[in-house]
């Protein structure tokens, strides 16, 4: 029988140990496939900070560096400046890049750092057990907002791609989701473009991916996908937020 699907070479053979229904695994596969399709596994270095994203060091077949919480983009900057001909990407959660790492997110984009940053947004701190993140929705119950996020008290959710898109150095900004096959196909295209932008040396590329956290949301995997669609998709601006002429011409 003809084999029509197999594990991408962009991932190692190690089984994921993410929670059931978590969409990190889908996003990992998409990145792995892009690395393989562009034939850049051997030329790419990934950087992941702490959090569930921190597990990714072992799952990708490219070289990988673990960074401190929030610091992945600063580490990636140092790496890219030292190895301008190589490809460098960061893989960060929303609790990382939208909170402790925000200053690096802004300045990495402002400097037009020629790296690709991928934010996995599940509106919560996953690894530490479901605490409120800057991306947590109004009213959302978390371990540190047990009565629901009160925006009077804790402010409003941050839509980071919108902010990054305002900076000249960010040449490609896309917000995608992995809650359905169509969205997954679109997400892969965006990830691929993010790496192609870097290959062309055009500037900073940022891809935000809406993701689920069934464990900390307290929902089943299927309910989580529904919750994402009903609550996150309407709130966060989706699609290609920014693509310069040079990027569109790729």
């Amino acid at each position: 029988m003809e084999k029509i699907f197999s594990r991408t070479k962009g991932l190692t053979s190690l089984p994921f140990h993410y929670c059931p229904g978590c969409t990190h695994g889908i996003i990992h596969r998409l990145i792995g496939e892009v690395l393989e399709e562009l034939d850049i596994i051997g030329d790419t270095i990934g950087v992941a900070p702490v959090g569930c994203a921190g597990f990714s060091l072992d799952f990708f077949s490219c070289d990988f560096v673990g960074a401190a919480h929030g610091r992945a983009q600063a580490v990636a900057t140092g790496m890219k400046r030292a190895l301008p001909e190589k490809l460098v990407f960061t893989y960060q959660g929303d609790g990382d890049i939208c909170a402790i790492g925000t200053s690096h997110a802004i300045h990495t984009a402002a400097r037009a750092e020629k790296i690709t940053s991928i934010m996995v947004n599940n509106a919560i701190f996953g690894m530490t057990g479901g605490q409120m993140a800057p991306t947590t929705l109004a009213g959302q119950i978390t371990a540190t907002s047990p009565y629901g996020r009160n925006c009077q008290l804790a402010g409003n959710p941050i839509d980071l791609p919108k902010i990054i898109a305002t900076l000249d150095g960010a040449v490609y900004v896309a917000a995608v989701s992995v809650d359905s096959p169509q969205q997954i196909i679109a997400a892969k295209k965006a990830i691929k473009k993010g790496f192609q932008v870097q290959q062309a040396g055009l500037g900073f590329a940022f891809i935000s991916i809406l993701s689920t956290c069934p464990t900390n949301w307290g929902l089943s995997p299927v309910e989580s996908l529904k919750w994402l669609r009903q609550n996150m998709l309407p709130l966060y601006q989706m699609g290609e937020l920014k693509a310069t002429k040079e990027v569109s011409a790729l």
Partner: peptide, 12 residues
């Protein structure tokens, strides 16, 4: 940021 940039460059 500066010390973490050093981290990335040293890793290379």
């Amino acid at each position: 940021a500066s010390i973490n940039m050093c981290y990335g460059a040293a890793a290379s």
